[in-house]
Every structure is written in structure tokens, then in C-alpha cells.
């Protein structure tokens, strides 16, 4: 039996909610959904001279997935993102743990504030600073030379994937720390006491109680770092010296310099599919994990 009053109330509440959300929603549809749809349509069209011919083709996708050039760019982007994600999350975990477990509750927000400040300062300048720090005649090399530790500058510091991983791990650090911190904060502290009462050491308590319970935060951190990293444009450009392009650089080149918008769109859509697939995989893992704990 339905209560007519309640239905009416819900209906009016639903209507108010929809009216309220419509301005931001319409904006997102116009500026995000419609352009992405346009890109998807372009990706199956044929590139003409200065125009895009509405002739359906799968060639752009075939090129994206089989051409050695684009495949290597895709693989490199994936690899760099995997390295960056692993480095960022592993380095960030102890920091999140420290703030959640070892810091006095009244000082926690100060520590979080300290961690987030560098993130809010100019991204371009931070990336450029790493170029300056790691450069051939940069801060580290000149510093070590001035201290007479080395005679010749270390060549392996700059213009390589390692430098890119370091820069990106620095850029996305707070993205990893905060979700892990939130997950750690939710853990019932008495569970750990129980672990120790039952004869576990500090380390095994961590491995068997704290770490599994904080996994949702770790998975969130992995996703939050992985997704923007794979689309990063500035770091390959500055730190890689333009010689180690990633997906964003390839998209830019095809869309603007080569003016092949269909192929560029196909690469962009493929990149989004990969990112989407990885996200779904991780969310699925997260759900299995949560179920296993119950």
C-alpha cells in the first residue's frame, strides 16, 4: 500500500532536487558529455585534407592498437603510471600511518595541512624545479661537485623515465596520503589491542589487522594517482625533454601539429578505455576484498 501523501512529498522533493541540480548538471552535459561524445564520433570518421569526412572506419583504432609508434607510447604511459603509482603509494603509506596513529589528535589537521601545502603551489614550477635539481649541471650534480664527491656530473639523473617517476611521485604525493589516512582513521583501535593481547607482535598485528583494514584507502589512492598520471603532459615535456612522449603528448601532436583529429580522438578514447578498465578492475578487487573480510 502506498501512502499518497508520501508519494506526493517524494515527488515534490524529487522535483526540487532535480531543479536544484540542473544548472551544474546541464553545464557538465554541455562541456563534458557532449565534447566527449563528439570525440567518440570523430574517432570512427576518416581524416581528410583539412576536413573530417563522415565515412565510418575502424582504421583509427586499428592504427592505435597495432602501429608500433602509438603502441609503444601507450605501453610507456602505462609503465610510467604503474611505477609512479607503486612508488607514491608505498612511500606515502608510512606517512599516513604516522599521522593517523602517532600524532596527537589535536595536531593531526596541522600535519595534514603541512602535507598539502606543496601540492597547492604552482605545478609547473614544481616540475621545472625537478628539472633544475636533476639537470646535468643542476643542483645535485653541482652540489656534489662542489663537495668534491664526484668529478663528472652524473648523467643518469636527468632526461629518463626514472626522473619522470620521481617528479610525478612528488606531484601526486598528497593524493595518496589523504585516502590512506582516512581509511586508517576509521579503524577501530581496540582491534589492534586485541591482536596484541592474542600474542601478535607489533609487526604481525600491522600485517594481519591494520594493513588489510586499510586496503580500501590504498585502492582509492592507487586509482587517484594512476588516473591523472597516465594523462600527464607537462612532466614528459619538461623532464623527459620531449623525447619520451606519453599519451597526452601523442594526443596533442596528432590533434594539433599533425591535424589528424580522428586518430587523435581514437587514441584519447582508447586511453580512457584503458583507464576505465583499470579502475573497474580495482573497484572489483576492492569489493571482493570487503566481502572477504565479512
Amino acid at each position: 500500500m502506498t501512502n499518497p501523501n508520501r508519494t506526493r512529498l517524494w515527488r515534490s522533493e524529487g522535483a526540487s532536487g532535480l531543479t536544484l541540480i540542473s544548472p551544474p548538471l546541464i553545464y557538465a552535459v554541455l562541456m563534458l558529455a557532449a565534447p566527449l561524445a563528439t570525440m567518440a564520433v570523430y574517432s570512427v570518421f576518416t581524416d581528410g585534407y583539412l576536413t573530417i569526412e563522415p565515412i565510418l572506419t575502424a582504421q583509427n583504432y586499428i592504427d592505435t592498437w597495432t602501429d608500433v609508434l602509438y603502441r609503444s607510447v601507450m605501453l610507456r604511459s602505462l609503465l610510467v603510471s604503474v611505477f609512479v603509482t607503486a612508488a607514491t603509494v608505498i612511500l606515502a603509506y608510512p606517512v599516513a600511518y604516522f599521522v593517523s596513529f602517532n600524532v596527537d589528535p589535536s595536531k593531526k589537521s596541522m600535519w595534514l595541512f603541512l602535507i598539502t601545502i606543496p601540492f597547492w603551489t604552482s605545478y609547473l614550477i614544481r616540475v621545472f624545479m625537478w628539472k633544475v635539481i636533476l639537470g646535468y649541471n643542476g643542483v645535485i650534480n653541482s652540489g656534489l661537485k662542489a663537495l668534491h664527491i664526484i668529478d663528472q656530473p652524473l648523467g643518469w639523473l636527468n632526461y629518463n623515465v626514472g626522473a619522470m617517476v620521481l617528479t610525478l611521485a612528488h606531484a601526486y604525493a598528497p593524493f595518496a596520503i589523504l585516502p590512506i589516512y582516512v581509511a586508517l582513521e576509521k579503524i577501530d583501535r581496540s582491534l589492534m589491542e586485541a591482536g596484541q593481547d592474542l600474542g601478535e607482535t607489533r609487526w604481525t598485528t600491522f600485517l594481519r589487522v591494520t594493513l588489510p583494514l586499510s586496503m580500501p584507502g590504498v585502492i582509492a589512492a592507487v586509482l587517484i594517482v594512476f588516473i591523472p598520471t597516465i594523462g600527464d603532459y607537462v612532466t614528459p615535456n619538461l623532464i623527459g625533454g620531449g623525447k619520451i612522449p606519453m599519451i597526452a603528448n601523442a594526443i596533442e601532436k596528432l590533434m594539433l601539429k599533425a591535424d589528424n583529429k580522428p586518430l587523435g580522438s581514437a587514441i584519447a578514447i582508447s586511453a580512457m578505455l584503458i583507464v576505465g578498465l583499470v579502475s573497474v578492475l580495482f573497484l572489483f578487487l576492492n569489493r571482493r576484498f570487503m566481502r572477504g573480510q565479512r
Binding site: 532536487g17 565534447p35 566527449l36 588516473i227 599519451i247
Partner: peptide, 28 residues
């Protein structure tokens, strides 16, 4: 408020937070 399509609508509004900026700027 509770309203139909709330999760999907909010999801679309929040999506730019995780989408690479290069893809958004190129599509626009």
C-alpha cells in the same frame, strides 16, 4: 534532496576530478 538519477548526475559533475585534463581540453 533525494531524486531520480542522483548518483549518475553527481557522478558526471564530479568526473572532471579524475579525467586527464588533456582529454577534456582536446574534446572541448
Amino acid at each position: 534532496y533525494a531524486f531520480p538519477g542522483k548518483a549518475a548526475g553527481l557522478g558526471l559533475i564530479m568526473l572532471p576530478m579524475v579525467l586527464p585534463e588533456m582529454i577534456m581540453s582536446m574534446s572541448m
